[in-house]
Amino acid sequence: MRIKAELEPDIQDEAPTVSALTDYDRLHVVTYMRLLDSLEDPTATWEEACQLVLRIDPAREPARARRAYDTHLTRARWMTESGYADLLREARLH
């Protein structure tokens, strides 16, 4: 079964930390790209990105929001450094 990225998949409180591409990563490629894109806007705050991209309200759930934002951003960066290679490999096989 092939997992496809979604525009607004459900968000876990923490992104994966394993050193291999996961089904969660495949599903959240767009989420990761949106988080990275938010860093390019000098006026955007992590709270806005969390609210818009992860759909977690930092005012109501500050600890959960910060943990989700930090771990998903870390995973997004990992995808640009390592995880993308697995995605490319999979694309060649299909």
Results as ranks from 00 to 15, higher is better:
50 C>I: 03
19 S>Y: 04
65 A>Y: 06
9 P>N: 09
30 V>E: 11
81 E>F: 00
75 R>G: 04
59 A>N: 10
68 A>Y: 03
80 T>M: 13
91 A>L: 08
50 C>P: 03
79 M>E: 04
87 L>P: 01
13 D>N: 15
77 R>T: 13
58 P>N: 14
32 Y>K: 01
91 A>P: 00
21 L>Q: 02
76 A>H: 12
87 L>F: 14
10 D>P: 02
74 T>F: 03
40 E>P: 00
39 L>R: 14
79 M>W: 05
65 A>H: 08
51 Q>A: 10
87 L>A: 05
10 D>R: 15
29 V>Q: 14
14 E>F: 05
20 A>W: 10
16 P>W: 10
74 T>A: 15
52 L>H: 12
22 T>K: 02
80 T>N: 03
43 T>S: 14
28 H>W: 02
64 R>F: 03
58 P>L: 09
6 E>G: 12
82 S>Y: 08
44 A>Y: 13
61 E>Q: 12
23 D>C: 06
61 E>W: 06
61 E>D: 10
71 T>G: 02
5 A>C: 05
26 R>W: 10
18 V>A: 09
45 T>V: 00
66 R>V: 00
68 A>H: 06
39 L>W: 02
5 A>H: 06
20 A>Q: 12
92 R>F: 11
78 W>T: 04
16 P>H: 03
73 L>I: 02
20 A>V: 14
10 D>L: 12
83 G>K: 09
63 A>P: 00
41 D>K: 10
57 D>V: 07
26 R>A: 14
46 W>M: 08
85 A>Q: 15
65 A>N: 06
16 P>E: 07
17 T>I: 08
37 D>G: 11
87 L>Y: 12
11 I>F: 09
67 R>N: 11
53 V>P: 05
31 T>S: 01
62 P>H: 05
66 R>W: 03
67 R>H: 03
79 M>V: 06
67 R>L: 15
23 D>A: 14
29 V>G: 00
48 E>G: 04
79 M>C: 02
9 P>I: 10
66 R>I: 01
57 D>H: 07
2 R>E: 12
72 H>R: 02
41 D>F: 08
56 I>Q: 10
46 W>T: 08
42 P>T: 07
8 E>I: 04
54 L>A: 04
3 I>C: 10
72 H>P: 02
80 T>I: 01
83 G>H: 08
31 T>I: 04
65 A>L: 08
72 H>W: 01
92 R>I: 13
32 Y>W: 04
59 A>G: 00
8 E>H: 15
5 A>F: 11
47 E>K: 15
91 A>W: 13
83 G>E: 08
9 P>H: 08
50 C>K: 05
34 R>L: 14
27 L>T: 09
41 D>R: 07
84 Y>S: 04
34 R>S: 11
79 M>K: 07
38 S>A: 15
5 A>S: 15
18 V>I: 14
36 L>M: 12
10 D>N: 12
61 E>F: 07
84 Y>P: 04
48 E>H: 12
92 R>P: 00
7 L>I: 11
66 R>T: 06
75 R>I: 03
78 W>D: 06
80 T>Y: 05
44 A>F: 09
4 K>T: 06
91 A>D: 06
